[in-house]
């Protein structure tokens, strides 16, 4: 996530800079763009969750399809293909999630009565309709997660194409789930400057890409405000186990620490949200599922926790604004 600092040639320091480099067009109060207002979390009005719960627990398994022919440009989503074509090892390792891992994850949630909001690539639903039924029969929420992990949203993608991707994802998922599909998470959290407008135009009410808050806030689009939901990034299974390459025990510890901090803050500042993202291709492996279960045991053992879907949390928050 770090901006690249490496030198790539010996003469990068021998250029000149136009004086416009010292002009600061957006140096003003608030943000340097118009998508949302500047706001400090501690200064906001406290929120109350149903039954005085301190924590809204929002568990988000992501069901992803990584095409074998994923292009290298503009960049590959985390978990994408690695070797020259055909990369059978990574293709199948990700497919493992939808064939085997997902059932371990769902069972772990069932046993602890934890609800899920399942982020679907629409291609997963089209390829494996059984998985959609597994979600809808539990009355869990279906959230749109784009088309697949190769169909990214980014500047440089033709806007008509991007619009078609948004519509394809939402229409497939709405038709197959019978749900309104109110939430959106972009593949790889990547957006173009137009993505929020395109997504909101299709009636989506909340988006989860931006990782700048621990609570919801209004996010401006051409079709009115949507709610930016705090879908935490640094505490997900792939961040800790795949990006940082830390251990399963380290994952459990950090989930517990995350919960404890948010729980303590909720005592002072009002309800908080604990979001946990799970990738079945990662956590669903036989040697890792036990760590996810241990983390979930900890969350399920706490009182004052409200297991809720993204829409339920958003509605409760909105009602108090």
């Amino acid at each position: 996530m770090r901006p690249p600092i490496d030198a790539t040639s010996d003469d990068q320091h021998t250029h000149s800079l136009p004086d416009s480099y010292l002009r600061y067009e957006h140096r003003r109060y608030g943000m340097d763009h118009d998508r949302y207002e500047w706001s400090m979390l501690v200064k906001r009005k406290p929120v109350e969750w149903p039954n005085q719960a301190r924590i809204a627990l929002w568990v988000v398994p992501a069901l992803e399809f990584f095409p074998l022919d994923t292009p290298v440009k503009p960049f590959k989503a985390q978990g994408g293909m690695v070797t020259p074509y055909p990369d059978l090892r990574h293709f199948t390792l990700r497919e493992f999630g939808s064939r085997v891992g997902v059932f371990r994850v769902f069972e772990a949630l069932d046993k602890r009565n934890i609800k899920a909001t399942v982020a679907f690539n629409s291609e997963v639903a089209r390829r494996y309709p059984f998985l959609m039924e597994e979600v809808t029969r539990r009355n869990w929420e279906v959230m749109a997660h784009g088309v697949d992990m190769a169909k990214l949203h980014y500047s440089g993608l033709d806007e008509a194409k991007e619009k078609a991707q948004v519509q394809e994802s939402l229409s497939t998922l709405r038709e197959m789930s019978g749900q309104p599909v109110r939430g959106w998470l972009s593949p790889a959290r990547s957006e173009s400057f137009a993505t929020p407008d395109l997504v909101a135009a299709e009636g989506v009410e909340y988006m989860c890409d931006w990782i700048n808050d621990d609570m919801p806030y209004p996010f401006h689009t051409k079709s009115g405000d949507v709610v930016a939901m705090p879908h935490q990034h640094w505490i997900s299974d792939t961040t800790i186990l795949f990006f940082y390459k830390q251990s399963g025990a380290d994952f459990v510890q950090q989930v517990k620490d995350q919960f404890d901090t948010l729980y303590a803050e909720a005592g002072e500042h009002g309800g908080r949200i604990m979001a946990l993202t799970i990738h079945p291709w990662m956590s669903g492996q036989a040697h890792r599922i036990g760590f996810l279960e241990e983390a979930l045991d900890y969350l399920a053992s706490k009182s004052d926790v409200w297991s809720a879907t993204g829409s339920e949390i958003m509605d409760a928050w909105k009602a108090q604004q």
């Binding site: 901006p3 690249p4 943000m31 440089g156 173009s192 890409d209 931006w210 700048n212």
Partner: peptide, 23 residues
């Protein structure tokens, strides 16, 4: 040097930094 590794808006690194100021 380029500020961001990916096409703009490179919202993961941008918004994670904004998190520092907000939260």
């Amino acid at each position: 040097r380029q500020p961001w590794p990916k096409p703009r808006p490179d919202l993961v690194p941008y918004s994670e930094r904004d998190f520092g100021n907000r939260v």
